[in-house]
Amino acid sequence: MLQLNDIYKVFNEGTPDEKVAIDEISLDVKKGDFITIIGSNGAGKSTLFNIIAGKMFPDMGGVVINEQDVTGLPEYKRARRIGRVFQDPMAGTSPTLTIEENLAIAYSRVKPRTLRPGVTAKRRTFFKEQLETLGLGLEDRLRAKVGLLSGGERQALSLLMATFTKPDLLLLDEHTAALDPSRAALITRLTKEIVEREQLTTIMITHNMQQAVDLGNRILMMDKGQIIFEEEGARKKHLTVSDLLNEFGKMKGTELSDRTLLGG
């Protein structure tokens, strides 16, 4: 479904600040995979996402989505088939537009936008059904401006908007990190439900090791622009947080605590 072939990306090349962000990463994501990525700050996780989404282009290597080479394709063109949810709950929605207008924008992402009304009676019914699956009562507030919603509500809406057109690939960039624990748990639960229901191929960055262990069928650990540990299938299923910490320690040759990995 998604292939990354020897991706290499360096920032500030030729200056004292030179930093290799992605160091020849190759990855083959199969249809239906749910991959969680962990790693300390600066490990290259977000850069990897930006390269997949088309916000940045790799210095070397290629990105292939559904057998199509998209390495040079700009972000907005790839976005038809890639859903994204960001860490900042404010980032995924448009605050001065209403809930139904935001949903209409997400709904019309798959083809060129036309001069037909964005919100029609038929679509409104569909939006309502979709909002009901969130269980937050947003279906009764279709005409409320999104800027009035709480962070948790906005993130739930972002998640719905990113997924309800059934994208080929869903990228979740620490999308629960900015929420309080109960809201984060809600978004995690909704993510799990939606990904299972829609059978979405998903990659999720998280700093929460428990979340990384609980969700998905594959796990990647990144450090210094490389994938240093990978597990999938049955072995991934039985993985625990302490296993992860041990693995990380082995790779680095030192004992590490949860804190050092997270603190970076």
Partner: peptide, 25 residues
């Protein structure tokens, strides 16, 4: 209020968001 117009409004509101929904800002 058309599909096109909604995207136009989102450009001034949140360009990060509209790019991630295939709008060419």
């Amino acid at each position: 209020k058309t599909e096109f117009g909604l995207a136009l409004r989102a450009v001034g509101d949140n360009h990060l968001m509209i790019t991630s929904f295939s709008g060419n800002i």
